[in-house]
Amino acid sequence: MGENQQPTPFHSPQMRVSHDEREAVVERLNTAAAEGRLDFSELEVRLDLALNAKTYADLAPLTADLPQEGPVEPLVLKGGMNGATRTGRWRVPAQITVYGGMGSVKLDFTQTECRLPEIAIEAHGQTGGVTIVIPDGWVADTSEMDQGLGGFRDKTTSERLPGTPKIRLTGNGGTGGVVIRHPNSWDRRMQRRKQER
């Protein structure tokens, strides 16, 4: 059974479920809560039931009232003349292509909830450049990144927390450059300000 899918109807209700199948339902419940479909108390009850489920009959009702969640389409982000940003809470696909254009692009993962094991990002700095901000505890493999004229800077650490994705970054710095880093003091200050509103 693929990731993020509910138990399929042709399974016998009495058939035993695997760890992966329980985890897929847990992930779907967490996503539903992040989308505002479940409140915290309901999420807690359902998570407990999912983690202790033994059969498909135990699991199926936990996501029956939630929409089916398909895989997230690859994302292409272009800076164009005015620039582009992707910040806040957004669904992270496994593949992202970013073009800095004239105006630059900022890709900020700090408020996303992502359980993918790996995210492939192809970044082209072009004239405006590309900035990628990943949470503390995420790591990046940048060994296949081309400096270009604008250069490439990797300011991330190599300490990976369990359950976090690895960013596999490829592409070219172009004339604007590409930077991948963890949140700086300005990012943290702006995030605190948004949370206080």
Rank of each mutant, 00 (worst) to 15 (best):
T127F: 14
T85H: 02
R89N: 08
R46V: 11
T110G: 04
A94N: 06
F109L: 07
H124S: 08
A53W: 02
D65W: 01
G80L: 08
V92I: 08
G80T: 05
L51H: 10
L43C: 13
D65Y: 03
V45I: 10
E69C: 08
Q111P: 00
Q68H: 09
L51P: 00
E42T: 15
Q68S: 12
P117I: 06
I96L: 03
D39R: 09
D39E: 11
L38S: 06
V98T: 11
R46F: 11
G125N: 10
A60T: 15
P67W: 06
V92K: 02
T131A: 08
G103L: 09
T110H: 07
I96M: 10
D39C: 03
D65M: 05
R115Q: 11
I119L: 08
S41M: 08
G100T: 11
A64E: 14
L38H: 05
A123P: 02
R37A: 09
I134N: 01
E69L: 15
L66T: 05
V139L: 04
V105M: 06
G36H: 05
F109V: 06
P71A: 15
W138Q: 07
G80S: 06
M81Y: 14
P71V: 07
T55N: 02
L43M: 10
A34F: 02
F109W: 07
T85N: 09
G88T: 09
L77R: 03
A50F: 04
A33C: 08
Q68G: 07
I121D: 04
L107M: 06
V133F: 03
T110P: 05
T85K: 11
A33N: 09
P135T: 13
R37T: 03
P135Y: 09
L77W: 04
L77I: 15
E122F: 01
V45G: 00
K106Q: 13
A64V: 04
S143L: 12
A60W: 03
D141S: 14
L49A: 14
A53P: 01
V72P: 02
P117D: 12
I132D: 04
V98H: 03
P61T: 13
E113W: 10
G128K: 13
L47R: 14
V76D: 05
T131Y: 02
I132W: 05
